[in-house]
Amino acid sequence: MTSKSKPLPLELPSPRSATLSLSNAWRLRLKGLALPVLIILVLECIVRIGWLPSYQMPAPSEIALTLADLAEGALWKHISASLLRVLLGFAIGAGLALVFAAWVGLSREAEAWLEPTFAGLRSIPSLAWVPLLLLWLGIDETSKIVLIAIGAFFPVYLNGVAAIRDIDRKLVEVGQMYGFSRTRLVRRILLPAALPGLFTGLRSGMSLAWMFLVAAELIAATKGLGYLLSDGRETSRPDIVLAAIIVLALLGKLSDGILAGLEKRFLAWRDTFNGQSAED
């Protein structure tokens, strides 16, 4: 129809404002880079001058060399081992959490049965599971993946339940007015309305999955980035430790970036406060 083909003025920024906002985005990115670059430069100087002993704090350039060195050899093996564990553990933990969150969030009956148990389990600091998992499952992959799944479970579960319970009753009533069935209500109103909260949960679940990966690999592993960390400590190689930290940071940022990208794509409809720009 005519109304469909007519674009909104709001959605078509003029070329001028487009280039302007592009350069703005770059300026923001440069602002973000300023502090890390400064710190690296200062560190390099301090280590070169000899204020910090290089067997404790290697110069950034030295770390870069170590990283390049590792990249020619074992680094990819460690990365793929860690990545596989995180993804598997996260998929299992977050998947189960979404199922239980939906169940508890939608049904008071399920809440009465399940919520106290989850509240109890949640109050166990997750790392306390480590010895038990090692005893039960041994030191191979299973125990690590289960630990990561436990770590990812709770943030996703908690945020999921909260997201469902925070849904505006008034929107739900619109569906009831149309006589929507339960599944239709979930599909058309509850799920989209809960999506922002679910994403929050998934993102913090992902970051906890990385944390528990390191914990698991520090304790018992023959490969993985956590193993690299403890290997560097045992062989007194702070450059290896720092290189592993940097790789962990990059991978964490990458996985979060992917989730953030999905969030931005699916939640473009949100009418949220985005902070004030310096020009305001």
Binding site: K4, P7, L8, L10, D271
Partner: peptide, 12 residues
């Protein structure tokens, strides 16, 4: 009287 707004989101 909302001709042209078919594809707008409520926030607009």
């Amino acid at each position: 009287g909302l001709t042209g707004f078919a594809d707008a989101l409520p926030k607009a």
